[in-house]
Write a protein that binds this DNA or RNA. Structure first.
Lengths: 143, 143
DNA sequence: CACCCGATGCGCTCCGGTGAACACTCACTA
DNA sequence: TAGTGAGTGTTCACCGGAGCGCATCGGGTG
C-alpha cells in the first residue's frame, strides 16, 4: 500500500525522482497518467488494466472515446532511469500545471501514487484536513 | 500499446514526421485512414483487417457501402520515407482540416494512433479532461 | 563518528525533428 | 520534337532537446 507524502524537485528537463519507498513497490508495467482533479498518478499494472478495460468494454460512444483519448494521450510507461527518475511529458505538465523547474508533492493514495503541484497540494490539503473531522464522524459512526 | 501525445509539424508538402516512439511499434502493412470525429488514424495491420471484416460481414446495405467508401477512399498505405515521414493525401487533409504547413497533435489511442489538427485537439482535450474525474471516480471506487 | 543511501544538479552525447537543397518526372509551349 | 517550367519526391545537414551517467551534498543510521 502506498502511503505518505514527499516533496521532491522537478528539474529543468521535467524529471523527478520517485521517492525510494514508492519505487520499491512499483512493478514493471506501471503507467503514469492523469487521475481525478487534474493531477498525475502512477497506476500499478492491475489498476491500469482495470481503467483500460472500462474504456473498451460496454458500447463505444462519444463519451467513451473522449475519456479514452484523455487517459491514453496523457499516459506514459513508468520507466525510471538509472537514478530512479521519470520524466514528465510536456502534455502531462501542461494539464496539471507543473512547471520546470518546480517542486511537486508525491503522495501515496493506497492503490496508487499521485503527483501534485506544490501550491495546489497545499491549498487542497489545508481544505481537506479542515473537513476531515466532520467526514470521519459520519464514516466511523456508521461502523 | 500506443500512448502519449506529440506535437509535430506538417511541412508545406503535407508531410509529417511520425514520432519515433510510434514508428518503432508500427509494422509494415499499417494503414492511414479516417477515424471517428473527423480525425486521421494509423491502424496496425490486425486492426485494419478487423475493420475491413466488419464492413463486409453483417448485412450489406446503403449504410454499409457509405462507410466502406469513406474508409477506403480516405485510406492510404503507411509507408514512411527514409526520414520516417508520411505524406497526407489532399483528401485526408481536407476532411480533417489540416493545413500545409501547420501543427498537428499525434496521440496514442491504445491500439491505434490518431492525428489531430492542433486547435481542434486543444478544445477537445480541454473538455474531455474536465469530465475525466467523474469517470475515474466510478471505475476506481469499484475496485 | 563514519558509512551508506537517497535526492539533486551538472555536463556530455546521441538522436529525433525540422528546414532546405537537389533531382526527377510530367506537362505545357514554342 | 525539344526545351522549359513547375510540382513532387528524396536526401542531406543542422540544431535543439532529451536521455544517460557522474559527482556532490545532506540526512539518517549503526
Amino acid at each position: 500500500m502506498f502511503t505518505g507524502a514527499h516533496r521532491v524537485k522537478v528539474d529543468d528537463k521535467g524529471r523527478l525522482a520517485i521517492p525510494a519507498q514508492f519505487r520499491k513497490q512499483l512493478r514493471e508495467g506501471s503507467f503514469v497518467s492523469v487521475s481525478q482533479d487534474n493531477v498525475l498518478a502512477i497506476y500499478p499494472p492491475d489498476l491500469w488494466g482495470a481503467l483500460a478495460d472500462q474504456l473498451k468494454s460496454p458500447l463505444p460512444g462519444p463519451d467513451q472515446r473522449a475519456l479514452a483519448r484523455t487517459l491514453y494521450s496523457m499516459s506514459d510507461q513508468f520507466e525510471p532511469d538509472g537514478q530512479g527518475r521519470i520524466s514528465l511529458q510536456p502534455e502531462q505538465r501542461r494539464l496539471t500545471g507543473i512547471e520546470t523547474p518546480s517542486t511537486v508533492v508525491v503522495i501515496g493514495m493506497g492503490s496508487r501514487v499521485e503527483i501534485w503541484p506544490e501550491a495546489r497540494w497545499d491549498n487542497y490539503s489545508a481544505d481537506a484536513s479542515g473537513r476531515f473531522t466532520e467526514f470521519a464522524d459520519r464514516v466511523i459512526s456508521g461502523h
